[in-house]
Design a protein around this nucleic acid. Structure first.
Lengths: 349, 349
DNA sequence: CTGAAAGCGCTTACAG
DNA sequence: CTGAAAGCGCTTACAG
């Protein structure tokens, strides 16, 4: 209550009449001093309210902070509420936790404009999501380990899933039941923001820049195999993977006259597919009789209630675990590709 | 590529023939040097690959890290995937972001056993959830600001919602339609873990220790008003607010013979109510005709598809925002009470 | 507007 | 097993 300032390791050493090295060793290297001395130090420390070496000083001295930063392309708000990215984060957190590290969340968006922040305190960086600005990356200490998840960045280590084959597989499954008017709902596929129908005007991002493009390529391969010209398949784009942002686009699709309205919607995410499901049901459309739907991700919410989504299940938790292990040097720093699983629900039997 | 080590502020000063103070000022206090010199420093820094002052050194020197830690009672994995706590986190993140701070996630569980970690690096602590061990709290620097959310800790500032009146209100609404066999599904209410029916053997936590108890008190008040003896209302308890953990308990309830099976379930969370909804529908029970359900929280998932949950909506995002503002000194450090809203859905009209 | 110097609190070879 | 001493990279009064 009345302590004028926090007690330091040096104060404690003076108080006990031992060297600062012994205090430090008592907390960090028990084998470097006698158990008796260590016990005395620890109990005196408790008594005097010294809770251990200051992390700020230690990190400066040792050069390591035991903090790993996750740089999120989306806002923190979005990332924390989205099922897929929060699973990624929990996989990361699980591994960091188990190895005495903690997780610092950085938003890619805020980052660029930021005054010098705490970003360069981290021992390593996991960068998640599409197209982080180069500014952002150049702001990070060049020599720190960095792992990219779901996109490529130079020749850095990455963790990916098999987007193209997985999308091919789900589209092939869907097209086994003939579809007269298939359509695709993309996610962040266009260079310029577009929350609506994609036209020839729109420039699409490359497969290097976004996983969505790889997924579209898989869909197209399946279309061609079934004698459908991909260029004739209408496409829409969604700017953010939320109910709120995707709902108006989906309403636009469902508003089409019945002979133009798609009977099969291949969606780039479960969130989009679930939004389509909700809105279709509200209008009295039956899924799958009137409209078949596929998703991507395999989030729990899509599997709780019938009709369960036909989707591609990816293990985002494992993706996070692997990225964290790479950063900590517990897994080889390479380009890792995870496989996915086709999940067949009632939304597209 | 071949730089032997990272360039420091001192190196840069030597290179440019200016003092270290000017370099520091160029990055931190533009008004302390001429624009011309500042420009020269910044451009040389870029050229030599100096990305700005090292955060570890700065935080030691200034005593501030611009990091705020959130200490979560649950595991990080749970907290990141639960709708309510991730909303809280996003409210916190939003405010921190806007004020140049970053978010460090600490798990209360891991924390106690931890070797000296990076925990005491933070400038402040937001502690969320029930009954953190005292060990945990004593490990935090005593003089740092601390805000507790959803429980009380000594006379520290807190952010709460009006649990008792809100629960009273929803129970009163539910009991307007007569119920022959009401029941309550609690969450972490017992001192000893109990995932199943609560009997007289079980000791309940106090309202100081868990918000669940406050909610139960509200339910009981409504029961009494409707001439129902609270002691006659069967109660179950759930240990973790997830589908997996609550499902077996709910199956146990639904397995009861028809003349014992509750016709009204007052649940302590939407997650529990949604699990009950899913499992009831799987058995062909109709909600609300055969079984009425109420939740608590007002998460989005409960409102997407019919029957929407009758529930109490709490603004977890706002709770997070306020806690963050208190920590940053942008809001008075007091005991803040947020109000909630009764949401009437089809699960209990 | 600029520079010289102290010191934030610790850890770690190193010598004894 | 213990202690004296250097120094991690910065910021900030302070003097000029």
């Amino acid at each position: 209550m009345s302590s004028p300032r926090r007690i330091t390791l040096k104060d404690l050493a003076a108080e006990l009449g031992v060297s600062t090295a012994s205090i430090s060793n008592a907390f960090n290297r028990p084998d470097q001093l006698s158990p008796k001395l260590r016990e005395r130090i620890l109990s005196e420390a408790r008594r005097l309210g010294y809770t251990g070496p200051d992390a700020k000083a230690r990190s400066l001295r040792t050069g390591r902070s035991r903090i790993i930063a996750v740089v999120l392309a989306e806002s923190l708000t979005y990332s924390l509420n989205d099922a897929v990215s929060s699973e990624l984060l929990s996989g990361i957190a699980e591994v960091l936790d188990a190895h005495g590290h903690t997780l610092l969340l950085l938003s890619g968006r805020q980052h660029a404009s930021q005054a010098p922040g705490s970003a360069n305190m981290a021992d390593g960086y996991i960068v998640y999501g599409l197209m982080p600005s180069l500014m952002l990356l150049s702001g990070l200490p060049a020599q720190s380990p960095l792992v990219a998840v779901d996109f490529n960045i130079d020749d850095r280590p990455t963790v990916h899933i098999d987007n193209e084959p997985a999308s091919y597989a789900i589209a092939r499954h869907a097209l086994r039941t003939p579809s007269r008017r298939p359509a695709v709902i993309n996610l962040r596929l266009t260079r310029q923001p577009c929350n609506g129908r994609i036209t020839e005007e729109h420039e699409l991002l490359s497969a290097e820049q976004t996983i969505t493009r790889s997924r579209l390529i898989g869909f197209h391969r399946a279309f061609e195999e079934h004698g459908i010209d991909p260029a004739q398949v209408p496409m829409w784009n969604i700017e953010e993977n939320t109910f709120e942002v995707s709902a108006p686009v989906i309403e636009e699709i469902l508003d089409l006259p019945e002979d133009e309205r798609p009977d099969l919607l291949l969606c780039m995410s479960d969130r989009i597919a679930l939004t389509a499901l909700t809105l279709a049901e509200r209008r009295g459309l039956r899924v799958p009789q009137d409209l078949r739907l596929t998703g991507f991700d395999g989030i729990a919410e899509g599997q709780y209630r019938p009709p369960r989504l036909t989707t591609v299940r990816q293990d985002s938790v494992e993706k996070g675990r692997i990225a964290a292990k790479m950063i900590l040097g517990l897994a080889p720093r390479e380009r890792k590709l995870l496989t996915t699983e086709l999940l067949i629900g009632e939304s597209c039997p």
